[in-house]
């Protein structure tokens, strides 16, 4: 995390964080697919891997400032991931880029960006927290980011892990897992897990590189 809430995150630091998030997804391809095989169609790992590989391929040569970078990431996810997660994660990044606009990217605006992203996911998926989806990770994370305070990175990671774990006993009411009814209970939602991985990687990357 940056030292102060108003220190802008540099484009290079954002790119390093995105790279770390991509690596986290790619490294967990099999786990995500396994989770999705249990309650879905089993393609979440490969779909996300394809999307984040496409992001990595574009990232190095990109001269985009943070808002354009978020837009480009969102568009890449929409166009390459497929499944429901492509439009959902794509909408998340697109909405964050739009909410950022011309402001500098700072910790102070992080909650507003995430909030805009979450609203977009809710609207695209016609869903809310408690339905065994990525929102069960993202919504509790937003509450922690919004509250701010010391050791924010660690508390955000803890909220993401708790949110993903909390999907295990839930019965799915959205997506293909909802077809399983009661049998969706007892499995972690793959989207909640991929969101946790992304947030952990983001927090770790930002704590490693506090310099603007």
């Amino acid at each position: 995390m940056t030292d102060t809430a108003s220190t802008p995150l540099s484009t290079d630091a954002l790119k390093a964080a995105v790279r770390a998030m991509a690596v986290a997804i790619i490294d967990h391809t099999e786990e995500l697919s396994r989770l999705d095989q249990a309650i879905g169609d089993g393609d979440h790992g490969l779909n996300m891997k394809r999307g984040f590989e496409a992001i990595l391929a574009k990232l190095d040569g990109s001269a985009d400032a943070p808002p354009a970078l978020l837009k480009s990431i969102g568009t890449t996810l929409v166009m390459t991931v497929g499944g429901a997660s492509g439009p959902l994660y794509g909408s998340l990044a697109l909405a964050m880029g739009k909410a950022l606009g011309d402001q500098p990217l700072t910790l102070a605006c992080a909650a507003d960006l995430l909030d805009a992203g979450i609203q977009s996911v809710m609207s695209r998926g016609r869903s809310q927290a408690g339905e065994k989806t990525m929102l069960d990770t993202l919504v509790p994370v937003l509450a922690v980011v919004r509250a701010g305070g010391a050791d924010l990175g660690d508390r955000v990671k803890a909220a993401a892990a708790a949110g993903a774990a909390a999907t295990v006993p839930l019965r799915a009411s959205k997506g293909r897992a909802s077809f399983l009814g009661e049998r969706s209970i007892g499995h972690m939602d793959p989207g909640a897990r991929s969101s946790q991985l992304l947030i952990e990687a983001l927090c770790d990357a930002l704590s490693k590189d506090p310099a603007p």
């Binding site: 169609d41 393609d43 779909n47 394809r50 390459t80 991931v81 497929g82 499944g83 492509g86 439009p87």
Partner: peptide, 12 residues
């Protein structure tokens, strides 16, 4: 189908 020729759907 998805971009890799497997089952799925994609925007393009």
């Amino acid at each position: 189908g998805n971009v890799d020729g497997g089952l799925g759907t994609h925007v393009p």
